[in-house]
Design a protein around this nucleic acid. Sequence first.
DNA 1: TATTGTTATACTCTATAACTATA
DNA 2: TATAGTTATAGAGTATAACAATA
Lengths: 160, 160
Amino acid sequence: MERFEELARRLSAVGAVKRDLGRTLPQDCPAGSAAVLTALDREGEMRMSRLAELLAVDTSVTSRHVAHVADRGWIEKSPDPADGRSRILRLTPAGRRKLAQLSERYTRALAAHLADWSDDEVDRLNAMLARLRDSFGDCRTAPRPPDAGGPAEPTTRTPA
Amino acid sequence: MERFEELARRLSAVGAVKRDLGRTLPQDCPAGSAAVLTALDREGEMRMSRLAELLAVDTSVTSRHVAHVADRGWIEKSPDPADGRSRILRLTPAGRRKLAQLSERYTRALAAHLADWSDDEVDRLNAMLARLRDSFGDCRTAPRPPDAGGPAEPTTRTPA
DNA sequence: TATTGTTATACTCTATAACTATA
DNA sequence: TATAGTTATAGAGTATAACAATA
């Protein structure tokens, strides 16, 4: 169990890293908003429920974050032809520009701190974090739909 | 930069893992309090300023968390013979019992989710997270950038 | 009746700034 | 004057529950 106790502490310490990186974000786009933009950029347009699932937070939380970015014109909500209760969320050109700006700053800060890491090391950390996330799978929400069409061409953005 | 963009997303996703694990914590001891108990258990008695440094949060934040656990009798504050402004923080027996309880639940949840990980894999993740934390050293004093619309301001650092 | 999303409320975590009490 | 710690205030993130509109 010792190694799991260590892991618990290490995960806790990741918070410090994230707080530090979060300071690169502009005042009008906090981490929650950046996460919405990033998800829509990578996965393409989607409904609120799916976005909440991707972000692994409650729909009420997602609703607030979406409202924030929609108020600023970074995403648009169009009617969902398949379900009148739902709407389709989509990045706007302004949203893409905002995301590009965020991503550039955030990623640059990360790269600066990890300047002495080899590409391979970063890749290995990425792989392990991916596995970690998978191991916690869908403890909060339903599994992703059987994915058929593949995500709309992601432009490789990033932030929080 | 792509691998750093991926890392940014992976780090963000760690939040979901931590939220999930955080649900194992008892109502009277949230994550911040647990962090205080853990640090005092591992590093031994210390002053507020050192604790704040270990947790990588502002002393005002630490002060609140310490007040929470002190109110519940989990730590005690004794006068610092070397400096009258300061006090020494120390776990009480009750604090140790509380921590043992927390740790048991938290660690068990972690172990359950990572049941199919080998010891070696957990060790490697631990090592990488340790290095990640080290790479962000003591960068807690960096103020927020002036933000708002404009392009990323110039940085003195030269990322890879 | 069930589901999608919104809103009201509450709690945790964090930071900045003002304040106290020592040094 | 400077430092250790506290407190007041504010902002972000999250969750639960009550609600509206639609299915």
